[in-house]
Design a protein around this nucleic acid. Structure first.
Lengths: 292, 292
DNA sequence: ATAGATCAAATCAAAATGATATCATCTAAA
DNA sequence: TTTAGATGATATCATTTTGATTTGATCTAT
């Protein structure tokens, strides 16, 4: 009996592809494998035979259409990560290499309007890994353009934009910089000062426990419980302090102390806001009042 | 001279991995390849030699650290899609198969709080491909729980949730259903009526041209122009009518006729709102007034 | 009935891979 | 300073995987 673990990387990939197509498309022909992996026809037959050996009841060949079909007894051989599945469906699989783009008409991801430059990302990531500073020109929404030296230690998406978390030499504190607003980014090839390293970014490393509850104005709370996979109407999360405000804004979480926001767009309420005490990061959160 | 196109899928994948590591991490050791592809050490040496042949100036071996380093003359051999890059960095590459999860500390994607069940997605996708209806129990925010038969034709992410676009037999029109609010989903194995097919979903197929402009209240418009890659302060988009409202809400686009919203959270304004005429899909858009 | 498409299975040659041994280079500990 | 240990390169050979080709089966469409 063949075991999955015995197989090499390429073979497992092809079997995973078969598994995926059956589960999420329902059918599969040899030509699909040839197209995707640029492999020979004979290989496809072999792979299909191998898959049948691993999961005899997962598919049947219909000669009418010359395709394999998923059976009702289908049991996935591979665990497919839900987020990754949706990504693959949207992109039309890509080829695993350059993520080829055959965007699907049937699975459409949210429109991303902000696309960081990949050279900027590359330079940032290398600086992060090398523990180096970068010099750049930054355009702030409040103060406009200026040259900066910053020491980045992480990149994060706040739901809309990609930010880089970095020590800012100008203000001498850790801050967020929007990746698309960085220009002329250059890695500075020398060691950084100790206190500028990511380890000293308190707000980044401080993990905050929050309880999100269904907002009391919601008429059918079960819908929201299902959305967020809540048990007992509560979603418990552990969040970096530096990212908490963004999260609240992204999910439109009512951060008033008594869930007093109305308007219908708030599905969630930050239940333990009072216990958390004052947090400057919540300034941007819906309904948050600082002086309480 | 070896050409990229001559190589097989597995080899190209490994070379792409080398290329990616150099560009986005800056360094690479044989062990990284062994870990990722579960390959033999000798193979790694072969792959590295092959990569050197393809791009002689992209990396140098430093014996001090026994690693290869990206040179300043680096020219990527593969085109890496920006969105895919960030995904790979966040997930710690995965293994291309089950998208193995070694979440990175240095690259953090936005927190997804809503995770559609992969069996639901699978059933929906198969029904879409097979042009079949499904039966399910749906919990609506406004009207609560009910059994439905719907004919799905696409899945879309509206920035927060995954929706399925489907003909609803109950209301006899095309509507959006939140994937996480579907329960007991079953494919109905029989042909659908003509008018229920996706081709007849007018709002889905109607493509609307919109012009987004930097909101007049923004102090440093260049920051926003950079974010959205605008030329001349305008971002032109073609959007499905069915998704337009979500897009406006996702990006907080001021949809009032004269960009009258204040508050600082609006970076964009829908400049050609007047030309568009009344659109019911904009009901949920910030600042939209129906009777004008 | 027949041509055409697609699948399966078998065979053989070519290519890729894994295992192993030997050597080189550099670091870090003795 | 010397030496052990880690990691890299390279070469060789056996094994495995893959590609190409042929033959045969099944079904559709004409």
């Amino acid at each position: 009996m063949t075991e999955l673990a015995e197989l090499n990387y390429a073979q497992r990939e092809r079997l995973a592809f078969i598994d995926f197509c059956l589960q999420f498309i329902g059918q599969l022909a040899r030509a699909d494998l040839v197209n995707h992996f640029k492999t020979g026809l004979a290989s496809c037959s072999r792979d299909l035979t191998l898959y049948k050996e691993l999961a005899p009841n997962n598919m049947t060949l219909k000669h009418e259409t010359k395709q394999y079909y998923r059976t009702n007894e289908f049991q996935p051989v591979f665990e497919h990560n839900p987020e990754a599945i949706l990504g693959s469906l949207c992109r039309g699989f890509g080829d695993g290499i350059s993520q080829g783009i055959n965007p699907s008409e049937k699975c459409i991801d949210a429109t991303r309007l902000i696309h960081p430059d990949s050279d900027v990302i590359a330079t940032l990531m290398r600086a992060i890994n090398n523990r180096h500073a970068i010099s750049c020109d930054y355009i702030s929404l409040t103060s406009g353009e200026s040259s900066r030296e910053i020491i980045p230690h992480a990149i994060a998406n706040n739901g809309q934009r990609w930010h880089v978390r970095a020590f800012d030499k100008k203000s001498k504190e850790f801050r967020d910089f929007v990746c698309t607003r960085l220009q002329n980014v250059t890695e500075i090839q020398k060691p950084i000062a100790t206190m500028q390293a990511g380890e000293y970014d308190k707000q980044w490393h401080n993990i905050i426990s929050i309880d999100l509850a269904v907002h009391p104005t919601v008429k059918h709370p079960k819908a929201i419980e299902l959305d967020f996979g809540m048990s007992g109407g509560i979603l418990h999360l552990e969040v970096r302090e530096a990212l908490l405000g963004y999260l609240m804004r992204q999910w439109n979480v009512d951060c008033s102390s008594n869930a007093m926001l109305t308007g219908g767009e708030h599905h969630l309420w930050l239940k333990n806001i009072v216990e958390l005490g004052g947090l400057s990061c919540l300034k941007i959160a819906p309904g948050y009042k600082e002086s309480e």
